[in-house]
Design a binder for these strands. Structure first.
Lengths: 197, 197
DNA sequence: ATAGTTCCGGAACGAGGTTCCGCTTTGCTC
DNA sequence: GAGCAAAGCGGAACCTCGTTCCGGAACTAT
Protein backbone atom coordinates (compact mmCIF):
# COMPACT_ATOMS: atom_id res chain seq x y z
CA UNK A 1 0.00 0.00 0.00
CA UNK A 2 0.95 3.63 -0.41
CA UNK A 3 2.98 5.09 2.37
CA UNK A 4 1.56 8.53 2.07
CA UNK A 5 -1.88 7.29 1.32
CA UNK A 6 -3.14 10.62 0.06
CA UNK A 7 -3.97 12.23 -3.25
CA UNK A 8 -3.40 10.93 -6.74
CA UNK A 9 0.35 11.27 -6.24
CA UNK A 10 2.47 10.79 -9.32
CA UNK A 11 5.98 10.81 -7.99
CA UNK A 12 6.05 9.71 -4.37
CA UNK A 13 7.19 12.66 -2.21
CA UNK A 14 9.90 10.29 -0.99
CA UNK A 15 9.73 10.71 2.73
CA UNK A 16 12.89 10.51 4.71
CA UNK A 17 14.13 7.11 5.69
CA UNK A 18 13.94 7.80 9.42
CA UNK A 19 10.34 8.95 9.04
CA UNK A 20 9.40 5.75 7.32
CA UNK A 21 11.12 3.70 9.96
CA UNK A 22 9.45 5.62 12.76
CA UNK A 23 6.05 5.08 11.22
CA UNK A 24 6.59 1.33 11.22
CA UNK A 25 8.01 1.42 14.74
CA UNK A 26 4.93 3.30 15.88
CA UNK A 27 2.58 0.88 14.20
CA UNK A 28 4.30 -2.02 15.90
CA UNK A 29 4.39 -0.28 19.26
CA UNK A 30 0.74 0.68 19.01
CA UNK A 31 -0.28 -2.85 18.10
CA UNK A 32 1.63 -4.20 21.07
CA UNK A 33 0.21 -1.65 23.50
CA UNK A 34 -3.32 -2.17 22.20
CA UNK A 35 -3.01 -5.85 22.95
CA UNK A 36 -1.94 -5.33 26.54
CA UNK A 37 -3.69 -2.09 27.51
CA UNK A 38 -6.52 -1.90 25.04
CA UNK A 39 -7.29 0.58 22.32
CA UNK A 40 -7.80 3.31 24.90
CA UNK A 41 -4.16 3.25 25.94
CA UNK A 42 -2.74 6.77 26.37
CA UNK A 43 -0.86 8.14 23.40
CA UNK A 44 2.08 8.74 25.71
CA UNK A 45 2.33 5.03 26.43
CA UNK A 46 2.56 4.26 22.76
CA UNK A 47 5.15 6.95 22.21
CA UNK A 48 7.20 5.63 25.12
CA UNK A 49 6.95 2.06 23.90
CA UNK A 50 8.13 3.17 20.48
CA UNK A 51 10.92 5.22 22.02
CA UNK A 52 9.65 8.28 20.24
CA UNK A 53 8.40 11.75 21.16
CA UNK A 54 4.80 12.84 21.17
CA UNK A 55 5.35 15.15 18.25
CA UNK A 56 6.44 12.22 16.13
CA UNK A 57 3.29 10.28 16.80
CA UNK A 58 1.12 13.21 15.83
CA UNK A 59 3.19 13.91 12.75
CA UNK A 60 2.43 10.44 11.45
CA UNK A 61 -1.05 10.00 12.85
CA UNK A 62 -2.83 13.32 13.29
CA UNK A 63 -5.22 11.73 15.72
CA UNK A 64 -5.50 8.68 17.92
CA UNK A 65 -8.21 7.41 15.61
CA UNK A 66 -5.87 7.48 12.63
CA UNK A 67 -3.39 5.35 14.51
CA UNK A 68 -6.08 2.83 15.39
CA UNK A 69 -7.24 2.72 11.80
CA UNK A 70 -3.70 2.16 10.59
CA UNK A 71 -3.15 -0.67 13.05
CA UNK A 72 -6.31 -2.53 12.13
CA UNK A 73 -6.65 -1.64 8.48
CA UNK A 74 -5.36 -5.00 7.32
CA UNK A 75 -7.72 -6.97 9.47
CA UNK A 76 -10.72 -4.90 8.49
CA UNK A 77 -9.86 -5.35 4.85
CA UNK A 78 -9.40 -9.07 5.38
CA UNK A 79 -12.80 -9.27 6.99
CA UNK A 80 -14.37 -7.36 4.13
CA UNK A 81 -12.74 -9.62 1.59
CA UNK A 82 -13.87 -12.71 3.43
CA UNK A 83 -17.46 -11.69 2.77
CA UNK A 84 -17.53 -12.39 -0.94
CA UNK A 85 -15.47 -15.53 -0.43
CA UNK A 86 -17.91 -16.91 2.11
CA UNK A 87 -20.83 -16.12 -0.13
CA UNK A 88 -19.17 -18.06 -2.91
CA UNK A 89 -18.31 -21.12 -0.87
CA UNK A 90 -21.16 -21.39 1.61
CA UNK A 91 -24.11 -23.68 1.05
CA UNK A 92 -26.57 -20.86 1.65
CA UNK A 93 -26.41 -17.07 1.79
CA UNK A 94 -27.75 -17.20 5.31
CA UNK A 95 -24.91 -19.44 6.41
CA UNK A 96 -22.45 -17.10 4.75
CA UNK A 97 -23.96 -14.13 6.55
CA UNK A 98 -23.75 -15.93 9.87
CA UNK A 99 -20.14 -16.89 9.37
CA UNK A 100 -19.19 -13.45 8.23
CA UNK A 101 -20.82 -11.81 11.22
CA UNK A 102 -18.97 -14.24 13.44
CA UNK A 103 -15.74 -13.17 11.84
CA UNK A 104 -16.54 -9.56 12.56
CA UNK A 105 -17.60 -10.26 16.12
CA UNK A 106 -14.46 -12.27 16.83
CA UNK A 107 -12.40 -9.42 15.50
CA UNK A 108 -14.12 -6.83 17.68
CA UNK A 109 -14.27 -8.93 20.80
CA UNK A 110 -10.57 -9.69 20.76
CA UNK A 111 -9.62 -6.03 20.47
CA UNK A 112 -10.02 -4.66 23.94
CA UNK A 113 -12.08 -1.48 23.71
CA UNK A 114 -12.32 -1.29 19.95
CA UNK A 115 -16.07 -1.78 19.76
CA UNK A 116 -16.65 0.99 22.27
CA UNK A 117 -14.75 3.44 20.14
CA UNK A 118 -16.62 2.67 16.95
CA UNK A 119 -19.60 4.76 18.01
CA UNK A 120 -20.43 7.56 15.66
CA UNK A 121 -20.93 10.03 18.47
CA UNK A 122 -17.47 9.43 19.90
CA UNK A 123 -15.89 12.82 19.25
CA UNK A 124 -12.68 12.53 17.29
CA UNK A 125 -13.33 9.03 16.09
CA UNK A 126 -15.53 9.80 13.12
CA UNK A 127 -12.73 8.66 10.84
CA UNK A 128 -12.56 5.26 12.51
CA UNK A 129 -16.31 4.89 12.35
CA UNK A 130 -16.36 5.90 8.73
CA UNK A 131 -13.54 3.59 7.72
CA UNK A 132 -15.10 0.52 9.25
CA UNK A 133 -18.46 1.24 7.74
CA UNK A 134 -17.17 2.20 4.31
CA UNK A 135 -15.34 -1.05 4.19
CA UNK A 136 -17.88 -3.39 5.73
CA UNK A 137 -21.33 -2.06 4.92
CA UNK A 138 -21.11 -2.88 1.20
CA UNK A 139 -20.11 -6.44 2.03
CA UNK A 140 -22.88 -6.76 4.55
CA UNK A 141 -25.35 -5.37 2.05
CA UNK A 142 -24.28 -7.98 -0.45
CA UNK A 143 -24.75 -10.79 2.04
CA UNK A 144 -28.08 -9.47 3.24
CA UNK A 145 -29.42 -9.12 -0.26
CA UNK A 146 -28.37 -12.60 -1.21
CA UNK A 147 -30.06 -14.01 1.87
CA UNK A 148 -33.15 -11.92 1.27
CA UNK A 149 -33.37 -13.02 -2.35
CA UNK A 150 -33.05 -16.61 -1.17
CA UNK A 151 -36.00 -15.90 1.10
CA UNK A 152 -34.08 -16.80 4.19
CA UNK A 153 -34.33 -13.49 6.03
CA UNK A 154 -36.61 -10.50 6.24
CA UNK A 155 -35.94 -8.21 3.30
CA UNK A 156 -36.20 -4.97 5.24
CA UNK A 157 -32.89 -5.07 7.07
CA UNK A 158 -30.43 -2.25 6.52
CA UNK A 159 -26.77 -3.25 6.48
CA UNK A 160 -25.65 -0.07 8.22
CA UNK A 161 -28.08 -0.59 11.02
CA UNK A 162 -27.14 -4.23 11.41
CA UNK A 163 -23.45 -3.46 11.52
CA UNK A 164 -23.99 -0.84 14.16
CA UNK A 165 -26.17 -3.18 16.14
CA UNK A 166 -23.59 -5.95 16.02
CA UNK A 167 -20.81 -3.54 16.87
CA UNK A 168 -22.78 -2.23 19.82
CA UNK A 169 -23.45 -5.71 21.11
CA UNK A 170 -19.71 -6.32 21.22
CA UNK A 171 -19.00 -3.41 23.53
CA UNK A 172 -17.53 -4.47 26.83
CA UNK A 173 -17.67 -8.12 25.86
CA UNK A 174 -14.19 -8.56 27.19
CA UNK A 175 -13.90 -7.36 30.79
CA UNK A 176 -17.25 -8.92 31.70
CA UNK A 177 -17.39 -12.69 31.96
CA UNK A 178 -21.13 -12.59 32.51
CA UNK A 179 -21.76 -11.04 29.11
CA UNK A 180 -21.27 -13.10 25.99
CA UNK A 181 -21.51 -10.85 22.97
CA UNK A 182 -21.42 -13.81 20.62
CA UNK A 183 -24.60 -15.22 22.09
CA UNK A 184 -26.39 -11.88 21.83
CA UNK A 185 -25.33 -11.46 18.24
CA UNK A 186 -26.63 -14.93 17.53
CA UNK A 187 -29.98 -13.89 18.92
CA UNK A 188 -29.96 -10.78 16.78
CA UNK A 189 -29.15 -12.79 13.67
CA UNK A 190 -31.78 -15.34 14.60
CA UNK A 191 -34.21 -12.45 14.88
CA UNK A 192 -33.85 -11.45 11.28
CA UNK A 193 -34.90 -14.85 9.97
CA UNK A 194 -38.04 -14.68 7.99
CA UNK A 195 -40.79 -16.24 10.04
CA UNK A 196 -41.12 -19.53 8.21
CA UNK A 197 -44.59 -20.87 7.54
CA UNK B 1 -38.64 8.75 50.17
CA UNK B 2 -35.72 9.30 52.47
CA UNK B 3 -33.62 12.33 51.76
CA UNK B 4 -30.46 10.84 53.07
CA UNK B 5 -31.19 7.47 51.61
CA UNK B 6 -28.79 5.65 53.94
CA UNK B 7 -29.11 3.41 56.93
CA UNK B 8 -32.21 2.56 58.90
CA UNK B 9 -32.31 6.11 60.25
CA UNK B 10 -34.73 6.81 63.05
CA UNK B 11 -34.46 10.53 63.58
CA UNK B 12 -33.35 12.24 60.40
CA UNK B 13 -29.81 13.61 60.90
CA UNK B 14 -31.37 16.99 60.15
CA UNK B 15 -29.02 18.39 57.58
CA UNK B 16 -28.72 22.10 57.31
CA UNK B 17 -31.42 23.83 55.38
CA UNK B 18 -29.06 25.33 52.81
CA UNK B 19 -27.55 21.91 52.19
CA UNK B 20 -30.94 20.40 51.48
CA UNK B 21 -31.84 23.25 49.18
CA UNK B 22 -28.55 22.98 47.31
CA UNK B 23 -29.05 19.29 46.77
CA UNK B 24 -32.40 19.89 45.12
CA UNK B 25 -31.02 22.79 43.09
CA UNK B 26 -28.24 20.53 41.88
CA UNK B 27 -30.62 17.76 40.95
CA UNK B 28 -32.72 20.19 38.94
CA UNK B 29 -29.71 21.79 37.30
CA UNK B 30 -28.26 18.41 36.43
CA UNK B 31 -31.51 17.21 34.93
CA UNK B 32 -31.73 20.34 32.82
CA UNK B 33 -28.14 20.14 31.65
CA UNK B 34 -28.46 16.43 30.88
CA UNK B 35 -31.39 17.19 28.61
CA UNK B 36 -29.55 19.79 26.60
CA UNK B 37 -25.94 18.60 26.74
CA UNK B 38 -26.31 14.93 27.51
CA UNK B 39 -25.22 12.88 30.45
CA UNK B 40 -21.56 13.56 29.59
CA UNK B 41 -21.87 17.25 30.36
CA UNK B 42 -18.90 18.53 32.38
CA UNK B 43 -19.45 18.75 36.12
CA UNK B 44 -18.48 22.41 35.91
CA UNK B 45 -21.41 23.11 33.64
CA UNK B 46 -23.81 21.64 36.14
CA UNK B 47 -22.24 23.57 39.00
CA UNK B 48 -22.46 26.77 37.01
CA UNK B 49 -26.05 26.12 36.04
CA UNK B 50 -26.90 25.53 39.69
CA UNK B 51 -24.97 28.64 40.71
CA UNK B 52 -22.86 26.57 43.05
CA UNK B 53 -19.19 25.76 43.54
CA UNK B 54 -17.51 22.52 42.57
CA UNK B 55 -17.01 21.56 46.18
CA UNK B 56 -20.73 21.64 46.74
CA UNK B 57 -21.44 19.25 43.95
CA UNK B 58 -18.90 16.78 45.24
CA UNK B 59 -20.14 17.09 48.78
CA UNK B 60 -23.59 15.96 47.72
CA UNK B 61 -22.61 13.58 44.97
CA UNK B 62 -19.16 12.10 45.52
CA UNK B 63 -18.93 11.19 41.88
CA UNK B 64 -20.49 12.10 38.57
CA UNK B 65 -22.08 8.70 38.53
CA UNK B 66 -23.87 9.32 41.81
CA UNK B 67 -25.38 12.46 40.39
CA UNK B 68 -26.60 10.61 37.34
CA UNK B 69 -28.10 7.90 39.51
CA UNK B 70 -29.85 10.46 41.66
CA UNK B 71 -31.33 12.20 38.64
CA UNK B 72 -32.71 9.04 37.08
CA UNK B 73 -33.49 6.97 40.16
CA UNK B 74 -37.20 7.69 39.96
CA UNK B 75 -37.48 6.69 36.35
CA UNK B 76 -35.49 3.50 36.83
CA UNK B 77 -37.67 2.55 39.76
CA UNK B 78 -40.79 3.32 37.74
CA UNK B 79 -39.54 1.09 34.96
CA UNK B 80 -38.81 -1.70 37.40
CA UNK B 81 -42.25 -1.42 38.95
CA UNK B 82 -43.91 -1.43 35.55
CA UNK B 83 -42.57 -4.93 35.01
CA UNK B 84 -44.81 -6.73 37.45
CA UNK B 85 -47.75 -4.60 36.43
CA UNK B 86 -47.32 -5.47 32.78
CA UNK B 87 -47.03 -9.13 33.60
CA UNK B 88 -50.30 -8.94 35.51
CA UNK B 89 -52.26 -7.11 32.83
CA UNK B 90 -50.81 -8.42 29.59
CA UNK B 91 -52.45 -11.21 27.64
CA UNK B 92 -49.19 -13.15 27.50
CA UNK B 93 -45.87 -13.08 29.28
CA UNK B 94 -44.14 -12.56 25.98
CA UNK B 95 -46.23 -9.48 25.27
CA UNK B 96 -45.40 -8.18 28.73
CA UNK B 97 -41.70 -8.74 28.14
CA UNK B 98 -41.84 -6.93 24.84
CA UNK B 99 -43.64 -3.95 26.30
CA UNK B 100 -41.33 -3.77 29.25
CA UNK B 101 -38.25 -3.85 27.07
CA UNK B 102 -39.78 -1.06 25.00
CA UNK B 103 -40.21 0.98 28.13
CA UNK B 104 -36.57 0.49 28.99
CA UNK B 105 -35.40 1.28 25.48
CA UNK B 106 -37.48 4.44 25.31
CA UNK B 107 -36.00 5.53 28.59
CA UNK B 108 -32.42 4.95 27.45
CA UNK B 109 -32.82 6.37 24.00
CA UNK B 110 -34.25 9.64 25.24
CA UNK B 111 -31.37 10.21 27.67
CA UNK B 112 -28.54 11.44 25.53
CA UNK B 113 -25.43 9.42 26.34
CA UNK B 114 -26.90 7.39 29.20
CA UNK B 115 -26.66 4.03 27.49
CA UNK B 116 -23.01 4.61 26.68
CA UNK B 117 -22.20 5.19 30.31
CA UNK B 118 -23.89 2.04 31.54
CA UNK B 119 -20.99 -0.13 30.44
CA UNK B 120 -19.42 -2.09 33.23
CA UNK B 121 -15.93 -1.25 32.12
CA UNK B 122 -16.50 2.48 32.26
CA UNK B 123 -14.16 3.41 35.09
CA UNK B 124 -15.94 5.29 37.84
CA UNK B 125 -19.41 4.30 36.74
CA UNK B 126 -19.61 0.94 38.44
CA UNK B 127 -22.19 2.38 40.81
CA UNK B 128 -24.45 3.44 37.95
CA UNK B 129 -24.07 0.09 36.26
CA UNK B 130 -24.80 -1.72 39.50
CA UNK B 131 -27.84 0.36 40.34
CA UNK B 132 -29.50 -0.18 37.01
CA UNK B 133 -28.84 -3.88 37.07
CA UNK B 134 -29.81 -4.43 40.69
CA UNK B 135 -33.08 -2.76 39.99
CA UNK B 136 -33.91 -4.17 36.59
CA UNK B 137 -32.39 -7.62 36.36
CA UNK B 138 -34.80 -9.18 38.88
CA UNK B 139 -37.75 -7.80 36.97
CA UNK B 140 -36.35 -9.00 33.71
CA UNK B 141 -35.72 -12.42 35.20
CA UNK B 142 -39.32 -12.60 36.31
CA UNK B 143 -40.60 -11.71 32.86
CA UNK B 144 -38.22 -14.10 31.13
CA UNK B 145 -39.19 -16.97 33.38
CA UNK B 146 -42.87 -16.40 32.90
CA UNK B 147 -42.41 -16.34 29.14
CA UNK B 148 -40.20 -19.41 29.28
CA UNK B 149 -42.72 -21.30 31.40
CA UNK B 150 -45.41 -20.34 28.91
CA UNK B 151 -43.18 -21.88 26.25
CA UNK B 152 -43.01 -18.66 24.27
CA UNK B 153 -39.24 -18.13 24.36
CA UNK B 154 -36.09 -20.12 24.65
CA UNK B 155 -35.51 -21.02 28.27
CA UNK B 156 -31.77 -20.43 28.26
CA UNK B 157 -31.72 -16.66 28.25
CA UNK B 158 -30.00 -14.86 31.10
CA UNK B 159 -31.61 -11.63 32.24
CA UNK B 160 -28.31 -9.91 32.92
CA UNK B 161 -27.05 -10.70 29.49
CA UNK B 162 -30.25 -9.57 27.84
CA UNK B 163 -30.27 -6.28 29.73
CA UNK B 164 -26.70 -5.61 28.74
CA UNK B 165 -27.44 -6.49 25.16
CA UNK B 166 -30.44 -4.19 25.04
CA UNK B 167 -28.51 -1.43 26.75
CA UNK B 168 -25.69 -1.80 24.30
CA UNK B 169 -28.04 -1.65 21.34
CA UNK B 170 -29.27 1.71 22.58
CA UNK B 171 -25.86 3.34 22.56
CA UNK B 172 -25.64 6.23 20.16
CA UNK B 173 -29.25 5.79 19.08
CA UNK B 174 -29.77 9.49 19.37
CA UNK B 175 -27.18 11.42 17.37
CA UNK B 176 -27.50 9.00 14.46
CA UNK B 177 -30.66 9.14 12.40
CA UNK B 178 -29.59 6.12 10.40
CA UNK B 179 -29.58 3.88 13.42
CA UNK B 180 -32.85 2.88 15.05
CA UNK B 181 -32.14 1.11 18.31
CA UNK B 182 -35.78 0.18 18.71
CA UNK B 183 -35.73 -1.85 15.53
CA UNK B 184 -32.54 -3.66 16.55
CA UNK B 185 -33.96 -4.46 19.96
CA UNK B 186 -37.06 -5.82 18.26
CA UNK B 187 -34.86 -8.14 16.25
CA UNK B 188 -33.07 -9.25 19.37
CA UNK B 189 -36.34 -9.97 21.14
CA UNK B 190 -37.64 -11.74 18.06
CA UNK B 191 -34.49 -13.83 18.18
CA UNK B 192 -35.26 -15.26 21.57
CA UNK B 193 -38.60 -16.69 20.48
CA UNK B 194 -38.65 -20.41 20.77
CA UNK B 195 -38.47 -21.75 17.24
CA UNK B 196 -42.07 -22.91 16.92
CA UNK B 197 -42.29 -26.41 15.52
C1' DA C 1 -24.29 36.44 71.29
C1' DT C 2 -21.10 32.38 70.97
C1' DA C 3 -19.05 28.25 70.11
C1' DG C 4 -19.12 24.35 67.33
C1' DT C 5 -20.39 22.22 63.32
C1' DT C 6 -21.57 21.85 58.76
C1' DC C 7 -21.14 23.72 54.25
C1' DC C 8 -19.42 26.27 50.53
C1' DG C 9 -16.34 28.09 46.79
C1' DG C 10 -12.91 27.63 43.89
C1' DA C 11 -7.84 27.09 43.50
C1' DA C 12 -4.98 23.25 42.60
C1' DC C 13 -3.78 18.56 41.14
C1' DG C 14 -3.40 14.69 37.90
C1' DA C 15 -4.48 12.47 33.58
C1' DG C 16 -5.04 12.67 28.76
C1' DG C 17 -5.21 14.57 24.02
C1' DT C 18 -3.17 17.89 21.07
C1' DT C 19 -0.23 21.86 19.56
C1' DC C 20 4.01 24.37 19.02
C1' DC C 21 8.57 25.42 18.13
C1' DG C 22 13.68 25.25 18.61
C1' DC C 23 16.95 21.87 17.50
C1' DT C 24 18.65 17.62 14.79
C1' DT C 25 18.99 14.62 10.84
C1' DT C 26 18.89 13.78 6.27
C1' DG C 27 19.55 14.28 1.48
C1' DC C 28 21.28 17.14 -2.17
C1' DT C 29 24.66 19.98 -4.35
C1' DC C 30 29.14 21.55 -5.32
C1' DG D 1 33.74 16.56 2.46
C1' DA D 2 31.34 20.85 3.46
C1' DG D 3 27.29 23.55 3.34
C1' DC D 4 22.42 24.19 3.35
C1' DA D 5 17.49 23.95 3.24
C1' DA D 6 13.89 20.99 4.11
C1' DA D 7 11.89 17.31 6.73
C1' DG D 8 11.59 15.36 11.18
C1' DC D 9 11.90 15.06 16.03
C1' DG D 10 11.19 15.67 21.16
C1' DG D 11 8.90 17.16 24.75
C1' DA D 12 7.37 21.34 27.21
C1' DA D 13 3.13 23.62 27.34
C1' DC D 14 -1.81 24.15 26.83
C1' DC D 15 -6.54 22.73 27.32
C1' DT D 16 -10.34 20.09 29.23
C1' DC D 17 -12.18 17.41 32.72
C1' DG D 18 -12.75 14.75 37.03
C1' DT D 19 -11.66 15.09 41.67
C1' DT D 20 -9.43 16.74 46.16
C1' DC D 21 -8.47 20.15 49.62
C1' DC D 22 -8.92 23.64 52.83
C1' DG D 23 -9.71 28.47 54.58
C1' DG D 24 -13.57 30.90 55.49
C1' DA D 25 -18.84 31.69 55.61
C1' DA D 26 -23.32 30.08 57.10
C1' DC D 27 -26.25 27.62 60.24
C1' DT D 28 -27.81 25.99 64.83
C1' DA D 29 -28.00 24.67 69.46
C1' DT D 30 -27.20 26.94 73.72
Amino acid sequence: MNDSGEGAGQAAPARRKDARRNQQTLLDAAAAVFVTSGVDAPVRDIAARAGVGLGTIYRHFPTRADLIIAVYRHQVDACADAGSALLATSPSPHAALGQWINLFVDFLVTKHGLAAVLQADNAGFEALHAYFLDRLVPVCTELLEAAAVAGEIRPDIDAYELMRGVGNLCIGADSDPRYDARRMVELLIAGLRRPHH
